[in-house]
């Protein structure tokens, strides 16, 4: 049953043999995806906790962007209302007061600039918070699986297999978490503004095209953040000597 064919002189092997050896150790992408996705779905509870970091961060980002789009929409609506009012008055009172129309047009340029810089600051902060949260979550989820990684290396896994498995997992988590986070943040802001304005017309007033771009951006940011912050822990775990990885006790 067991073949006793020798190690094909691996030590003295030339270029050709090395290529042969490389081919002999494989982890097809399909298998890697299958294993990673299963890892995510089977430990659903644990996954949810890891993902909640992403969800919260991206929910914050999404809410900031949603509120900005909603405010823009409301402002535009108000402006239009004022303009119509002014025009109506102007028509009523004759053309002499046309010059004053400009004075009514909403917020000054300075205020607008302050508002937008505040928004940029908020977005940067939310990204930082999200990034730190995800890195922490990823570190934890890698650390608690050191033994598993050590075992895989004993079974012949290359460092790159381990990194690949964890990165696929990170992307899956990233997509899952940021979709949920984006929707949560978006709905929360819609709700808050609807309550504040005491009408459901908020949704009608906003620019949905722009909103969609922002929402997709949220998902992209969450996924990329998750991927980037998983690289360091995954590489660190993969480089461990199997003996050391197997000895870790948690």
């Amino acid at each position: 049953m067991l073949d006793v064919k020798g190690l094909a002189k691996a030590a003295g092997g030339g270029g050709k043999e090395e290529i042969k050896i490389q081919r002999q150790i494989t982890l097809p992408w399909s298998e890697a995806v299958r294993i990673s996705v299963r890892n995510v779905t089977i430990r659903l509870g644990r996954t949810m906790i890891t993902a909640s970091g992403i969800v919260l961060g991206i929910a914050f980002l999404s809410s900031v962007w949603t509120s900005s789009v909603i405010q823009d929409g409301l402002q535009r609506a108000q402006l239009q209302q004022e303009r119509e009012l002014v025009e109506a008055t102007a028509r009523g009172q004759g053309e002499s007061e046309n010059a004053n129309i400009e004075n009514f047009t909403g917020i000054s340029e300075e205020e607008q600039q302050a508002e937008s810089s505040k928004r940029v600051w908020l977005v940067v902060m939310s990204l930082l918070v999200c990034g730190v949260g995800i890195t922490n979550a990823m570190l934890m989820s890698v650390t608690e699986r050191f033994r598993e990684i050590g075992t895989m290396k004993c079974l012949g896994a290359l460092d790159s297999f381990i990194v690949r498995l964890f990165l696929i997992e990170a992307v899956a988590l990233g997509i899952l978490g940021s979709v949920v986070g984006t929707i949560l943040g978006h709905i929360a802001m819609l709700g808050i503004f609807s309550l504040r304005e005491r009408s459901l017309s908020v949704a009608a007033k906003m620019d949905w095209g722009q909103m969609l771009v922002y929402l997709l951006l949220c998902i992209l940011v969450g996924t990329v953040l998750s991927l980037v912050s998983a690289i360091a822990p995954a590489v660190r775990a993969a480089r461990m000597r199997p003996a050391a990885a197997l000895q870790t006790e948690i």
């Binding site: 190690l7 089977i42 598993e148 290359l158």
Partner: peptide
Amino acid sequence: DAFELAWLRCRKIGYIFQTFNLIPV
């Protein structure tokens, strides 16, 4: 090198541990 070592672990050696070390999922 790393490839050859992985190949050796994969094809030439079978490991059994005190704590079984099966992949739990």
